[in-house]
Design a protein around this nucleic acid. Structure first.
Lengths: 246, 246
DNA sequence: CGTATCCTTGATTCGCTTCAACATTAGTGG
DNA sequence: CCACTAATGTTGAAGCGAATCAAGGATACG
């Protein structure tokens, strides 16, 4: 039942200890000697083509995934067809934590571009986490970080206006690109206006209009999916400033 | 630094193995022999008066909490004063998971009524989870469940209309009261209209109006905080039905 | 290179918010 | 125990922000 993971999928090359995403991924903060012990944890790699699912709602939960290359969105669908994007994930981030609770995945994870993930069999993770203190602690931190992130999105959806939401989204993307060694001020969004809108609780037209207004006001330069942030500090102010001074 | 927890606060009476909240709380699903080993985990009890915080944003994270008596809200505050309620918690539910990620709490947990919690020192929890497989697994499930719950709230905030949100909220409360052996159709809300509104991303007036409309249509009987659900199935339909059939 | 997808922009509509007044309940102290 | 007062809840009218409907334009992908 818990046999060795097949080595066919993408070959079992080097694992965590050789990976350049260390500072972003699960092993972040672990000591070197522990990280070497992780190499046995990552079973195989899996390539996912653009627009293809890594997993779907209802799929049996067996592993979590660390993104090596590319990016994903996660979404939840309502019976009547409404979609809510619950997050966008970039390299080094972990997918699949939703499945632990019921042993079935509770959302869809869709690749936004051709991507590759490390498959981390969950049973093996729990086993190793019982032996490697640092791994246990890091894993808990990853889950907790996801909870904190979700609270931030609730704040966004529940209390912010359209332009504030988009500003928060852009600053968040910028910060995450920076953490990956890319430019903080210039980047390429992998998702459509509709997906951004779904994530922010807005319609795609509203997202488009907000982009245009930001452009008019010299906050950002927008050319389709290519974004250049021109005035970071004014974007930040936008988030915290009440519209009316009351 | 990690000395024994003082036994003064509320005395160290019997712990998990004697508790009647087993099926709802952390030990859910664990085998009896393991549950007995949990008794050393729960350090002390702590009483929190109505409107008082169990912890606040920025507080050092040292423990998670299981609610024994009463109920709480968690919220996040923005610099400009805006509040987002991120959840309401009832007996058996776990508070404080947000603190693991940075070792500082990232939200406020406020008692909605006079309440009592079991203090679970986090260091001790990690330690025990390395030895008791069932505890490890249960703890992970609790965290994952929180993530899944948060995704549900995002769906609510991002994709639903005011009446759908309130219907979803009422059904959720009903289901949780049921799980605690209370009536599914009649219960007392501990939170104000403003707090419900903050949670649902609505103003208190909108919540009040939605309640009134539900009452007019015979879905529920509302008398301030006392709620009686009259037509459960119609409430459920409300959530899934698109307003327009297109 | 052609076509489907994605994006932008305008006009109008609609749902929720805001502002305001009043009603009710809960909490406090005499 | 009752009177008083603050907190909470209800309801109406008007305003506004985002959704909807609609058309045209740019891009990217097969």
């Amino acid at each position: 039942m818990m046999a060795t993971v097949p080595m066919t999928v993408a070959g079992l090359k080097k694992a965590c200890s050789q990976c350049n995403l260390l500072e972003l991924c699960l092993p972040f903060g672990m000591i070197d000697s522990d990280i070497h012990r992780l190499d046995e944890l990552v079973g195989a790699r899996r390539k996912i083509k653009r627009h293809q699912p890594l997993y779907r709602t209802g799929d049996l939960f067996e592993a979590i995934y660390a993104i090596r290359i590319g990016s994903f969105k996660t979404d939840v669908l309502l019976e009547d067809g409404r979609e809510q994007v619950t997050g966008f994930q970039m390299t080094g981030e972990i997918l699949g934590l939703d499945g632990i609770s019921t042993e079935l995945h509770s959302c869809n994870a869709i690749a936004l571009e051709d991507s590759e993930v490390c498959v981390i069999p969950y049973a093996k993770l729990e086993e190793l986490a019982r032996v490697i203190e640092g791994l246990q602690h890091q894993f808990h931190k990853v889950m907790s970080r996801e909870i904190v992130r979700d609270h931030g999105v609730m704040m966004l959806l529940g209390s912010m206006r359209a332009e504030e939401r988009l500003a928060a989204f852009l600053l968040n993307m910028s910060q995450r690109f920076t953490a990956r060694g890319f430019s903080a001020s210039e980047f390429h969004l992998r998702m459509t206006r509709e997906e951004i809108g779904s994530y922010l609780g807005l319609k795609l037209e509203t997202v488009s209009r907000a982009f245009s207004r930001f452009q008019d006001e010299g906050l950002v330069a927008v050319q389709q999916k290519h974004i250049r942030i021109l005035d970071n500090s004014r974007l930040k102010k936008l988030i915290q400033h009440q519209p009316s001074v009351r």
